[in-house]
Nucleic acid binder design. Structure first.
Lengths: 222, 222
DNA sequence: TGATGTGAAGCGGTTCACAGCC
DNA sequence: GGCTGTGAACCGCTTCACATCA
């Protein structure tokens, strides 16, 4: 157990471990070794032990990790035992698709509001979630105790949306607009840039076939 | 100019640079320095110069980079001057949203087929793209010269879908299923795992407020 | 002078290897 | 014997600093 800074690469992996533990638990297993986990995704077992050791000594030497208790620990560490209320900004194709994306529920995220500026959309519903005028943003965030914002507006409007989000006091943001946003450092911003991912795939396709990359899916470069 | 192995972090950044150059060109600028680019996204200027120098000496000392020629170079390096034909596997919510995602067009990717196994969906159209029975996968890939596959099926079916993709000879795959897939090393697999991104945000929210992360958006950990 | 291209230093994350414990 | 926890070695990417050149 240390109290160093935890890297985001580590927290990403914790999420992956937890997923695997949930599956193992479903199959009735009770313990698992770092080696067994490492084999499942192509990772190094020492890395798994290190990742876990940041948070405590969860393992038993000679045996491995008890699945149930490790699950509980990871669920708690990742904050998945607490509901998080989410809003989505931009009720376009992507925003509405996200509004009833099942993955949110799994991570204990609840989408409670969908914002747009288009008067034709306001008042309509996507699943259970109503589309609200962006003008009421600050008030709704406060009223509905929203902690997370998802930005699903065109690139040109994204920084603007982020400013509004930050002014409202929200500290966790997921951005889908293909643009590098500037956030103050007390705000956690995750950008998922599909365009860049596609263009990076395109680069791969443009290479002469013989110089194929050596380390497929090492996890670091996904 | 070297001929080392190019890291994926570099190709991702090339995509970002190109985006910026396109914008600058639209504003009528003709040259740009690595410093100016670095300021735009919060990067180090040496990194930009290094990234570009892998592919040639594009800059002019004392001046900077000529925007037009650098754009052409990057477009070519990233293979964006050639159309790539794409199929999407899984005509669920995500698959259909992707089928008319505008970002594909920008990267010169054309979605030509959408596969599903649900007989109720087969034959229907999403935008211009018809939903095809997955049984005809191999034949359609060959007939339509498809080079890229997007996996948008539930996690439990994803590895299976990938096997089918690899058997068909496709070498570039983008996976949206929240699961670590195993690909042979001649295949480029990019996984976009929303669940993990969300859970990592959740971790951030679960931390005591004072130990906020220091390096917001350094690019490496997004 | 001013900005590139690049060797060298720095840094963070991964892997090795082994002591410690069940 | 087997597996965890962890210091040390390693590795790759980033940043520095400066020689180089328009």
């Amino acid at each position: 157990m240390k109290s160093e800074k935890i890297s985001e690469l580590t927290t990403n992996r914790l999420s992956v471990y937890l997923r695997s533990l949930n599956e193992l638990a479903g199959k009735g297993s009770t313990t698992v070794s770092s080696r067994a986990l490492a084999d499942q995704f192509h990772l190094n077992s020492a890395q798994i032990r290190k990742d876990l050791a940041y948070f405590g000594e969860f393992g038993v030497r000679g045996v491995g990790y008890k699945i149930d208790t490790l699950r509980e620990h990871l669920t708690h560490i990742l904050g998945l035992d607490k509901e998080h209320r989410v809003c989505i900004i931009g009720a376009g194709r992507l925003g509405t698709a996200l509004a009833d994306y099942y993955g949110f529920r799994e991570a204990n995220f609840t989408v409670v509001a969908l914002f747009d500026s288009d008067v034709k959309k306001i008042g309509k519903k996507v699943g259970n979630v109503g589309i609200i005028d962006i003008k009421n943003f600050a008030a709704v965030i406060k009223r509905d105790k929203i902690e997370v914002a998802v930005i699903a507006v065109p690139a040109a409007n994204a920084q603007n949306a982020l400013e509004k989000v930050m002014r409202s006091g929200i500290k966790a943001v997921m951005n889908f607009a293909p643009v590098a946003l500037k956030a103050t450092k007390d705000v956690k911003l995750k950008t998922i840039d599909l365009t860049t991912s596609l263009e990076s795939l395109s680069y791969f396709l443009a290479q002469p076939v013989n110089q194929l990359k050596p380390k497929s899916g090492s996890g670091r470069n996904q």
